[in-house]
């Protein structure tokens, strides 16, 4: 008989390391900041103050000011809601599309599965950034366009991963049992297969937020996403690149903000991955 070690006891208590707690803390802080940022930022960040243009970082303006004399630190704080929430929204939207595609491919007849997976393959083989650029341009440059464009191009990977997992879940005895019980196909999917397949996405989500944030900022930077004077970070970099040679901080500060967010979520993804699969532990 197999040896049942007590470590495999029913519910493992989560003992987090200091490193893990730090990453969780940073991620939570970033979310909180995005939530309350626009509320605590002073009103003058949206108006020009020509007396204080392009001031370097100082005690009064921690990250300096931009060409309109607006405080960059507070603009970053105010803009974090746009950047982070737009990113999260993109991930939610394309995850939903991916779930629908994967579910249809799993329950549907073979030809539906084939068709959807070929479309997914095409989606995966296209350069996502270029396609989103096209879509956003057609829709007219704005943050909404950027979100829609990324949602429409981001789903194929989710669909593919989820379909594979759902197929595996379909093979589980408890799914077979539900079929023998006479459970309808819709209920089978929603109650038995999907909830037991989503685990795989949790890890992906954290990584996706990191990646999408970069792409979304990229779109704004190129000029097809959020437009200046919006304090969306990509748009801020875009607006500041004209005077980068005389005011480096106006580009560096939003760039750093994006990097901090992206890295935090990437680390979170890494932690979740290890937690899910303890064999990856060092």
């Amino acid at each position: 008989m197999t040896l049942v070690l007590p470590t495999a006891a029913p519910r493992r208590k989560a003992n987090f390391t200091a490193y893990e707690l730090t990453v969780f803390g940073v991620v939570v802080a970033l979310f909180l900041l995005a939530l309350i940022g626009p509320m605590i930022a002073p009103a003058d960040i949206y108006t020009s103050n020509m007396l204080e243009t392009l001031l370097p970082p100082s005690a009064e303006h921690w990250l300096g000011t931009d060409d309109q004399g607006r405080d960059i630190f507070w603009r970053l704080v105010a803009g974090s809601r746009l950047s982070l929430f737009a990113t999260v929204l993109v991930v939610i939207l394309y995850s939903i599309i991916g779930m629908i595609v994967a579910t249809l491919a799993t329950v549907g007849p073979r030809w539906v599965d084939e068709l959807l997976m070929r479309i997914t393959d095409i989606g995966l083989s296209l350069p996502g950034l270029v396609v989103s650029l096209g879509i956003a341009t057609v829709l007219g440059p704005s943050l909404q366009s950027g979100i829609i464009a990324l949602a429409l191009t981001g789903w194929p990977m989710t669909a593919r991963i989820l379909r594979t997992t759902m197929r595996q879940t379909m093979e589980q005895p408890f799914v077979e049992g539900a079929r023998i019980l006479g459970v309808s196909r819709t209920r089978l999917m929603l109650k038995h297969v999907l909830p037991n397949s989503l685990d795989v996405l949790i890890v992906k989500w954290a990584g996706d937020i990191s990646f999408t944030m970069l792409i979304l900022a990229g779109l704004s930077f190129i000029g097809v996403g959020a437009q200046p004077p919006s304090p969306e970070w990509g748009a801020m970099i875009s607006g500041a690149r004209g005077y980068m040679s005389i005011a480096w901080w106006a580009v560096a500060a939003p760039g750093a903000a994006i990097v901090i967010n992206a890295v935090a979520f990437a680390l979170l993804a890494d932690i979740l991955q290890v937690r899910r699969d303890p064999s990856l532990q060092a």
Binding site: G177, I180, G182, P195
Partner: peptide, 21 residues
């Protein structure tokens, strides 16, 4: 549907035959 109600199965492995969620 009637058949599904009248004939049921008990599996070998009680760990895999119940939806964990």
């Amino acid at each position: 549907l009637r058949f599904r109600r009248d004939v049921q199965l008990v599996f070998q492995d009680p760990y895999a035959s119940l939806n964990p969620r």
